[in-house]
Amino acid sequence: MKLISTALALTLAAFTATAQAQQITGAGATFPAPVYAKWGEAAKAAIGIELNYQAIGSGGGQNQIINRTVDFGASDAPVDAAKLEQNHLLQFPTVMGGVVPIVNLPGIDANKLKLPSELLAEIYLGKIVKWNDPKLVEANHGLPLPNLPIAPVYRADGSGTTFVFTSYLSAVSPDWKAQVGAATSVKWVAGNGAKGNDGVAATVKQVKGGIGYVEFAYATQNKLTTTQLRNKAGHFVAPTPAAFIAAANAGDWKGAANYAVNLIDTAAADAWPIVSPTFILLPTNPQDVTHSANVIRFFDFAYKNGGDIAKSLDYIALPAAVQDAVRSSWRSEIKGPDGAPVWK
């Protein structure tokens, strides 16, 4: 009889242990959604935290965390300091990724076309309209550039990818900065819009002479024809993980308030010029201390063990020093009602 009750107690204990997999909810950026999903699977198995992440877009993620309808928000574009303070939010990065131009030019393979950055801006400003424009020919000696109209394609839906891409164009082209600027959606001067990475990729694929921009992960997984870009140091670089890491290492992480580091057009010799981190927004005055602690445990786990997952999905993990800095921010900034740190 005793044996049975012990067995029963043990099963019950085991059952409650599994049922105790604790759920955390987050919403926001679409760009890191694949890696968050994989991290969620790994974390559920390893530390019993189940992530429910809704990729509703960065703007939506910011709205939801400001209203506190989720445990954390996610945003591709950094939130400005005043807004963070006003809404009692801590911002920290998770992974980085690159944005790459893709083209559809018959007879020209991936990473063969060289695009000086100012020409990319001029293409999207509608100033260069033919692929055999002398400026493009000059940068690409020996490449059979066709006599085709250039068909620029952009994201018609508001997106963090557009924010990163237009930030880059603003950084390299004063004309672009004055005329258009950088945001999740802008007033495009030339070209056609398409919905999502897949829409841009499909439109570029269909239109000969098309050029578009997508996230690097999307370009590699779908084997799209990417191009080289000239970086600030004057070198032409191809979009590779090594070039992204070079950009990440060149960033001024220490000097950036709220980790809003600028990795666009860094000075490093072999850096890809369009790289950006994506961010998490976490309340510094959590209503539910357990949930907040679980969110931090989740991202701590992801920092420690999620690097390979990120790499396999073509994202770039944070440098170790930045991870440590974020950990100390968690300790010092996020406190329960009693003033004690939520996570130790």
């Binding site: 703007g59 709205n63 209203n67 018609a156 839906d157 508001g158 997106s159 999740t184």
Partner: peptide, 19 residues
């Protein structure tokens, strides 16, 4: 030429609009 309609601009821009 390309254009836009009311319904499609609302569908596309809504998710990235701040409260």
């Amino acid at each position: 030429g390309p254009g836009n309609t009311i319904a499609s601009i609302v569908a596309l821009e809504f998710p990235e609009s701040q409260a």
